[in-house]
């Protein structure tokens, strides 16, 4: 297949994943802003930092009011990471890779662009926000369903999957990056237990607060949350899960192409060197250092994939 097409499938998947992740971040931020107006500004700020949009926001805005942040993240055309911009980029990539997509996938992506375009035409009222966020999640589920149900399991499929999991791993690691201080043992010691609302926000940002309780019961500990988000392989947004999926798809590419690329080697080294150890050892080495290193390795892998498979010249 064309390198450009592989790149378009990869970016289509990344952007779709990003729109869903950003919707989830807005959802989590919105909850905390409703329940804790005193810390709302700081929360919105950290949501923007997590989404990598704080710098752009500061260029055009003075204060972090819910209304402004939500509007910026949902539909500001000047914000290249707003959900509207991201969905448009997903659709542009789908158009470029149109000949490799099934009619079902293309129509799901196109419908999602049309539906969200209509929903986000005007500023979203606060009481409509939950519905709008639900619609975003639903559109993304429809695309995912069409993708998983109709696409050939060939190299194109692998590139899209690699895009999905690189993006997701990046997102989960960023959430940890922004909130890691809450999980540090010292804080837990000082405040006896970590702030209930805060840890719930973290778990909601990855749609896993229910799953956490199923697994760990009512016990809330920094170590367990970190373990859950970093190492727990059954959790579809954990770093370990994402890495495993990335490697599976890189392996399949290696088998199809009969060529071991640097990307394949880098992918397996992330799993082996960074994620095959107990959570305590991660804390011992410094949680912040771990996350910073993971984000760097993940980004380097993304670049290597683009190079090895000739997405661009």
């Amino acid at each position: 297949m064309l390198g450009k097409t592989a790149g378009s499938l990869y970016w289509m998947a990344r952007y779709l994943e990003r729109s869903e992740n950003n919707a989830r971040l807005i959802d989590a931020g919105f909850r905390i802003a409703l329940t804790r107006s005193s810390t709302a500004e700081a929360e919105w700020r950290s949501v923007l930092v997590t989404a990598g949009q704080n710098y752009a926001f500061q260029q055009t805005h003075q204060d972090y009011s819910s209304q402004r942040v939500v509007d910026f993240m949902l539909r500001d055309p000047a914000n290249p990471s707003s959900i509207l911009s991201v969905v448009k980029q997903a659709r542009d990539n789908a158009r470029t890779a149109r000949t490799y997509l099934t009619r079902e996938v293309w129509e799901a992506v196109n419908t999602s662009w049309m539906t969200l375009g209509a929903l986000l035409k005007r500023q979203v009222r606060e009481d409509d926000l939950p519905d709008v966020l639900a619609a975003i999640r639903q559109q993304s589920a429809l695309v995912r369903g069409a993708f998983s149900g109709t696409m050939l399991r060939n190299d194109g499929y692998n590139f899209a999957r690699i895009g999905t999991f690189l993006e997701r791993a990046d997102n989960t690691a960023r959430i940890l990056d922004v909130k890691y201080y809450l999980l540090l043992p010292s804080v837990a010691h000082i405040g006896s237990s970590i702030d209930n609302v805060q840890w719930e926000t973290i778990l909601r940002s990855v749609s896993a607060h229910r799953a956490y309780h199923w697994l760990y019961g009512t016990e809330i500990s920094a170590l367990k949350i970190a373990e859950f988000l970093i190492l727990y392989k059954q959790m579809p947004r954990s770093l370990a899960f994402c890495c495993e999926q990335m490697n599976d798809n890189l392996d399949l590419l290696q088998r199809t192409y009969g060529e071991e690329t640097d990307a394949v080697r880098m992918g397996s080294s992330i799993c082996r060197d960074r994620l095959s150890r107990p959570i305590q050892s991660i804390f011992d080495g410094g949680l912040h250092e771990f996350i910073t290193d993971f984000l760097r390795a993940n980004a380097a892998l993304a670049q290597q994939v683009e190079r090895d498979y000739r997405f661009v010249e």
Binding site: M1, L2, G3, K4, A6, F159, Y309, R310, E313
Partner: peptide, 15 residues
């Protein structure tokens, strides 16, 4: 996506 390689017009594939 295209360039001339060894006297032919060739497309850049993943390989």
């Amino acid at each position: 996506d295209l360039r001339v390689v060894e006297g032919r017009v060739a497309m850049r594939t993943t390989q």
